[in-house]
Every structure is written in structure tokens, then in C-alpha cells.
């Protein structure tokens, strides 16, 4: 399947670092996720994709101090997956895209021609991902499979150059290390039977920096970048999906429209009526809109801040206020998205 027929989805997220040391090793192959943590330096069957069953642990659990500059995009061959929702039994061709790769770019041009097989050693641009799709109770649903050619892999042996691995219990998929410098991974997901309701895709990616540049640590957990996020997918024909919880009319895309209507009414109303409308606007905004902290990755971006460059703003304000009769109103910044 060509990438052009995949419909772009709606997620762009950044990860946060937690703390382990340099000696920790990443999981360059998917099988290592299944490996025992003590005997084979494996993940013990944990996908680290941010799903609730893993206590929201992501790749950032080990890949520490990530600068959070990469993003994720989820694409699907059926665009209606993100608009109308998933349909029971449908096989979706999904693509996880790592955006804004910036680590290990020096090795990206080498492709697979890197690593210990070369003399002298050349580091690899080793990236990875993990994904699972859970119902509201946090249980993985549907069936995951690698893509072979343009079809979902069956029960047979998957060719070694297919860069997706599915956990032995079938609950999550991730890279299998077949290729270096990968920023796109394809997989199949067959939706479950009807009646499951909203399903959330939990995704995490790692932008590897090539380890410490030596064969000793070809893919350590230091200096990499990480992103993680969640994409809710409504069930087709069920209640319209709202990314926020709380059951408010102000949530989702309706929020902007409602807010604009309220502000327009406030601008038109006079006296007591205006104060009432403004009070209603604040009550509506504050009491009804709930965006959870884990859903604020986009809001945490610098370009979503009201004053992303305060130093420049101060200089510009000075220039404007010295040349115009008005001043005030721009010096105050509220707390933004409340992500800190």
C-alpha cells in the first residue's frame, strides 16, 4: 500500500524523560520486548507504549532526558477511521510516523550499512516504536499483525525484513529492528466485534542517536528523543467521539464555536446582561472543559504559548507603546496549558 492513500490522523505528541542510567540498554529488536527482564535484558512483555495497563509507562521510562522535539502521526488507509470511527471486523492498514527526527541523522544516510559488521564501526540510526489499541477498560482489543507486501500477515512466518513485531500475546506491536533509519512503520489492525465502544491507540516512539558512537553501546538509552501519545477512535455508528471527557457541550471542536458565540454575545450585550454573559462564559469554560494532562502534549508546545518569546515581546511592546496612544493588556500571561 502506498503512503499517499493513508489518511493523516490527528496526533502530535512529545515525550518526557524519567530516570535510568547509561548502562541501561534499549530494545533494538521486537523480541526483546518479550524477553525476560532478568535473564535476557528484555522487557518482560511490557510494550512501554503509554497504555494504562503499563501504568502509562512509555519509552521515556528508560530513554531519559529526552528533549521532546519529535512527534508522532498515525495514518490509516481508511480515512473514515478518524472521522466516522472504526467498523467491526475491518482490517486497517495503520502507519506510525516519527516526525521531526533529529537524532542520529549523521547515520541516517547509511541506512542498513552500519554497525558492528563494518570496520571501522559506524553507528546506526536506530529508531523504534510501539503501539497497542485498548478499549475503555484498558484491555487490548482487535488483532495486530505485520504488513507483508500489501496484505496483513497471516499465521505463517513473517519475512525477516518486515519491520514490525507483535508481542507473543498479540496485545501490542513494535519495531523488530529489521532496518535502520526507519521513521515509518506499517502494521495491520483488525477491529473487534461491534459494541466495544471507543478504542484508544497508545503510541510511543524513540528517535535514537546511535548509542555512544561505539560498538560498546550501539543503542543505549541516553541522548535519544521520545514521543508518546494517545488517539481515541470512536466506534462507527456509536456516539460521536469527543476527545475530552466530562460530557460537556464545550468540548471537542464544538468548544471553539461555543466560545466564539459566547464572546460575540458578550461583545453585543450591555450592562448587566453583558456581565451575565461573561460570567456564563467563564463558568462554561472552566466548569465544563476537561482536557487531561496526558492530552496536553500539543498544548505544551512553544508555539501554543501566548507569549512564546517574552524578550522579543517586551521590545516590540516598547516600540509600539512609544508610537501609539494605547498601551496595556498584553503584559499579562495566564498559566497556559497548566502542563508544568
Amino acid at each position: 500500500m502506498k503512503a499517499s492513500v493513508l489518511a493523516p490522523s490527528l496526533v502530535f505528541v512529545f515525550g518526557l524523560g524519567l530516570g535510568l542510567g547509561r548502562s541501561a540498554s534499549a530494545f533494538p529488536t521486537g523480541e526483546q520486548f518479550d524477553g525476560d527482564a532478568l535473564t535476557s535484558d528484555g522487557g518482560g512483555g511490557i510494550a512501554f507504549d503509554g497504555a494504562p495497563r503499563w501504568s502509562a509507562h512509555t519509552c521515556a521510562t528508560c530513554h531519559t532526558d529526552a528533549p521532546g522535539q519529535i512527534g508522532i502521526e498515525l495514518q490509516a488507509d481508511h480515512a473514515e477511521l478518524f472521522t466516522d470511527g472504526w467498523k467491526a471486523g475491518t482490517a486497517y492498514h495503520l502507519r506510525v510516523v516519527l516526525q521531526n527526527e533529529h537524532e542520529g541523522l549523521g547515520a541516517a544516510g547509511l541506512g542498513d550499512q552500519c554497525g558492528g559488521a563494518l570496520d571501522p564501526y559506524k553507528p546506526c540510526d536506530y529508531n523504534g516504536y510501539a503501539i497497542e489499541l485498548d478499549d475503555d477498560s484498558g484491555k487490548p482489543v482487535g488483532k495486530l499483525a505485520p504488513v507483508v507486501g500489501t496484505a496483513c500477515a497471516g499465521s505463517g512466518t513473517v519475512p525477516s525484513d518486515v519491520d514490525t513485531y507483535v508481542l507473543k500475546d498479540g496485545t501490542a506491536a513494535m519495531h523488530n529492528g529489521a532496518h535502520m533509519a526507519q521513521t515509518k512503520w506499517d502494521l495491520c489492525w483488525t477491529a473487534p466485534a461491534a459494541g466495544v465502544g471507543t478504542i484508544t491507540a497508545y503510541i510511543a516512539t524513540v528517535d535514537g542517536n546511535g548509542g555512544d558512537g561505539t560498538a560498546s553501546f550501539p543503542n543505549d538509552t541516553v541522548g535519544d528523543d521520545v514521543a508518546a501519545g494517545a488517539v481515541p477512535l470512536a466506534e462507527s455508528g456509536a456516539t460521536v467521539l469527543t476527545p475530552q471527557t466530562g460530557g460537556c457541550a464545550a468540548a471537542g471542536d464544538a468548544g471553539l464555536g461555543l466560545a466564539l458565540v459566547i464572546l460575540a454575545l458578550a461583545a453585543l450585550a450591555r450592562g448587566r446582561r453583558r456581565r451575565l454573559v461573561i460570567a456564563l462564559a467563564l463558568a462554561t469554560a472552566g466548569g465544563c472543559v476537561h482536557v487531561h494532562p496526558r492530552e496536553r502534549e500539543t498544548l505544551a508546545r512553544r508555539n501554543m504559548k501566548f507569549s512564546p518569546d517574552t524578550t522579543e515581546d517586551e521590545l516590540d511592546l516598547h516600540m509600539q507603546e512609544a508610537r501609539e496612544g494605547s498601551e496595556g493588556g498584553y503584559g499579562t500571561a495566564g498559566g497556559g496549558c497548566g502542563c508544568n
Binding site: 475530552q244 471542536d253 471553539l256 472552566g286 500539543t298 501554543m304
Partner: peptide, 24 residues
Amino acid sequence: NSVNASWTQVVTRRLIGQVTYELT
């Protein structure tokens, strides 16, 4: 002398609004 008050609101996962009043 100047006083100011602002209300910043997360509207959706991709939209933030803010209203500010300043009296000087």
C-alpha cells in the same frame, strides 16, 4: 498604578483561549 487580571482556558487539546483586562 496598574492592575490586571487574566483568565486562560484550555478549550480543547489543540485550542487555548485567554481574556485579559488591565486597568492603569
